[in-house]
Amino acid sequence: METSGFNQRHLLGIDHLSASEIDLILDTADSFVEVSTRNIKKVPALKGRTVVNLFFENSTRTRSSFEIAAKRLSADLINFNSSVSSLKKGESLKDTVLTLEAMNPHIIVIRHSAAGAPRYLTTFARSCIVNAGDGFHEHPTQALLDALTIRQRFGKLRGLKIAVVGDILHSRVARSNLILHQKMGNPVNLVGPPSLVPLEFERMGARVFYDLKAGVKDVDIVMMLRVQEERGAGNYFPSIREYRRLFEINAEVFATAAPDAIIMHPGPLNRDVEIETSLADSDRSVILQQVNNGIAVRMAVLYLLKGESNEAAH
């Protein structure tokens, strides 16, 4: 497979990628989509390499998606799960990573509640670092799998209009998608209550809407974000009831989007809070396709990074 043109040692965020590198990841992912349709869903690309899943936040889909991706590439994989609270008591992140690195892994996939934690790892670790979500900062593989899904549906990734709806302030998915679509030249609408959608995002090139109908009008992609009740929703909006009334996407509102528009959600869903359950299950919804594409995209990322550049260090 052609891998020239990908000069990243780590995947820390979409911000660090060029548009052509994004295209390359998605092209690579396309070929891995095919692998996943085979009877034997395994290629030897990363045979003999070790991937560490280092998750400091709860995650099922992202962690298992990376796990399957690594295994389908024939890599060895270990899972290291830790709640941040237990980490606070004992070992520092640096010591944890140095300990794991003493076992010579090639790639460390990290999810952490603190923004910048993956970047911090690159200041001392030898492995390739893949950001699987850092605080409110970035979740690059989510934006990439979203992009793959969009490309499959529309046959292109450029010339599309997108609306992202919900808790933009606390969403790494929103940030990574915003950055990705700006690199592709796509207009991005951010929709939600002002307390969750700072106007400063307009200085990043987005348009901010407080009215759902206005925000999704004529867009090709409606991306709903999970209402994160664990973030203390009450501080940012008065009640789920009022939030639902203003920002839940339903068939009626969705009808104002472009005729062939799709609806996306990074999951997990709050059915009938941010998304009407019948809409989530309709043929306009690509939510499960997103999950499925997660594997191919993560295979592509692991494959392109390979842990090759640190070979000399070992």
Partner: peptide
């Protein structure tokens, strides 16, 4: 708090 805190997720 401002553009940079929003962009870098802090």
């Amino acid at each position: 708090e401002g553009l940079i805190s929003y962009k870098y997720g802090m």
